[in-house]
Design a binder for these strands. Structure first.
Lengths: 237, 237, 237, 237
DNA sequence: GATGAATGAGGTTTCATTCAT
DNA sequence: TATGAATGAAACCTCATTCAT
């Protein structure tokens, strides 16, 4: 119903005259960021467009002008979240590291990413509550763009070639396990804290957990299963 | 699906006078179960008391009569959830199994528990969204009652004593890791499915994942680090 | 979503104790009447539930409690309108009048009915704007209950039997024409007044118009076509 | 459907400078036509400026630029409607027909006009809902320009002079009756269809109705009342 | 214990209109 | 002339909660 397109007019020199078109983009951005915070804090139903408008400093109607509906804004927020997640994953520095050290860093940095951006977890949980209904149609998301999966595949291949890692690692399952080790600590931090009567925010505990999950992943890769390439073929292959 | 149990009230003699209280308990139970489903499906904010009343087949006012507020019912639902979780964990059969086989079964059965009762995950996530605000005050919840943690500690101790497992396992961190491996697969099933373009519900994939996480946990316990309490030095050992 | 049923409990003696159930009916009635006025005055879109609540002296939410949606209330108003129209048509006194005088009275009284209850016209026009979408499903409305049509058929039959009226009167078309003569004067009173620069509300003009349309209808019935039962054959003749 | 005419502006020489004003007129016209359709479809309150802009393919602000307010556009639409109605009435071919045949054609063609342009009825009803508030001030509308009334007066005078028609025909009342016979059939087509359980759109029914109303009007003119000039004088005494 | 009428606050959304460009 | 961002008011509707019965 509203127009919600970026003006795409050739970028004018930044000055007083150019204010309007640029401001629209800036406004959109402000709303998006406010929406991200609000949805992360309260979930979809708990978030209020009123609050988002207030956070953005704009009139409530403007939110609808730019994003159509609350759901439209929510979807935009989800997309933005995946964008940020990918960007963060790309920042993990693996150059010059061998498979073992690289994998250790990958595990730990994935965990750190979740701790740095806890809103990612909240938004993901929310979308899972809705059975991924909103993002299912979004074509920009799928796996090829997933730097973490790509990094995993590179490291596992290198490790296998160097005879350091087992040969039968199924990348998707391995990716899920690796992520889950970091995700859960952060996602369930509060209930775990209550149930176990500990503070999962303590530095020492976090450091110990980093070691633990890195060890666990590497122990799996290095040890156990099959020291040499035997056809494991769990899934179908 | 829900095992309607009459909580502790001494069974009154069956007669006209006794009918009323008995029905009241049954009504409470119906509301509680409906609330459980509604909160699991829609989160706290997304759930509506109206819908819960409809699901229970009672008048809306009755929900308030029994639970005071929406929040009161929500808290009762959380308690019920932990109760069910504990009961499920108690059902894992470990008798007669050695540390290795026991741990394997524990990992796999924990994962299975999450798949059998996905509403547990939804309710836990919801409570984490609220930073455990509601359950924090509940004294019935903490760790002593946690059968999973207890089982872990028993198995790890046995394994260590038999020289099968490393000696430096920190139980809380290990518990988090073990749980996370199973939890995440189920909790993020929908977004992972979309992002990775796979169906995490496939039997074959689930079976493979069960092997993977059991292997991973055991590789950690058995391998690497230090069979005996030596300074951590995990990676290079 | 709301319950909206009449309590159907056996009517209690009217007293203080009986207030509540009866008040619900009274409240419904107040809202319905206010809705009738509001929809008649402003049309469906122009009417506001807020205004209806204010007119009824109840909270806005209560309107929805009783009627579900604005559209639900609107439909109830339409039904009420047809009810009133029928009741009014039943009040036309035709006993003891011959076909000619009876028909004259019928024409004039139909016209008077529209003048007495101008809101009927407004509500009918509104529903025609919506192509009768709302009332189409209502089974209580159709023709059998239409006292005007019934009266027409009786009078026309009597007139034909007495050799006073033509024999080939098609009741539905005749009903439409008879109604239209009265309806239009009232429905288009304001634009006609402006366009023709006259006041259609003047007593004298109204009296003259009553004569005119009665004459016109009777001239049609008595004259023209066929004074005696000859084969109808307008269409193909 | 809409005959886009360029109103009276002297045709400028086709060139760059002349393009602008020409396009402005075209734009105005597009908006006006879109407004006509939108107001006819949804009434004044139900119509949205946004929808009108969309239908016209212009920006919403432009509607206000050209017509000031929604009400301003609505008034322009009403004027345009009367213009079209007059034009249509002027098209009725009466040359060479005597009073009887002429009147018959007039009745039938008036009815046909309403069927051809149902939006006229919708717009008129809307304005009557507002008690002609908007058009009251418009000086361009009144009776002198009304071709139907003029034609009636001519035919009635001719009929009277030839001794065919009664002498006491009051033109305004007669005009209302004649119009009403055709108007009502179309204006209430949908509710009548539902209430009477017939389809008023059927060709055969329409043809029969045309005969009926022509007969009725002529029976009135030719018959009944007073074959010769008796004191008529209801209105002006 | 149980019902359902009733309320008041707040939810999302629409909309006529203004204004800078 | 034309655009579209921006606003503020009001729209319909939902909801947790209260209360008389």
């Amino acid at each position: 119903m509203a127009t919600r397109q970026r003006p795409k007019s050739a970028k004018p020199e930044p000055g007083a005259a150019a204010r309007q078109p640029r401001d629209a983009v800036r406004t959109r951005e402000k709303i998006l960021n406010a929406g991200l915070r609000e949805f992360a804090a309260n979930g979809y139903s708990g978030a209020s467009v009123e609050a988002i408008a207030r956070r953005s400093g704009v009139a409530k109607g403007l939110v609808f002008h730019h994003f159509g509906t609350k759901e439209g804004l929510y979807l935009a927020v989800q997309m933005r979240m995946y964008e940020r997640l990918r960007r963060r994953q790309n920042e993990t520095q693996l150059e010059g590291l061998g498979p073992v050290e690289g994998m250790r860093r990958l595990v730990i940095d994935t965990f750190r990413g979740f701790r740095e951006m806890p809103w990612i977890i909240r938004l993901m949980n929310e979308e899972n509550l809705h059975r991924a209904r909103h993002i299912r149609g979004a074509e920009a998301i799928p796996a090829l763009y997933n730097p973490l999966l790509a990094a995993i595949e590179r490291l596992v291949a290198a490790g296998r070639e160097q005879g350091l890692f087992r040969a039968d690692v199924e990348p998707v399952g391995f990716y899920v396990a690796l992520s889950g080790l970091g995700y859960f600590y952060q996602s369930n931090r509060y209930t775990l804290g209550t149930v176990l009567q500990v503070d999962l925010g303590e530095e020492a505990r976090i450091a110990a957990y980093e070691e633990l999950i890195a060890d666990m992943v590497l122990a799996y890769l290095q040890g156990g299963g099959a020291p040499f390439p035997t056809p494991p073929a769990r899934d179908g292959g």
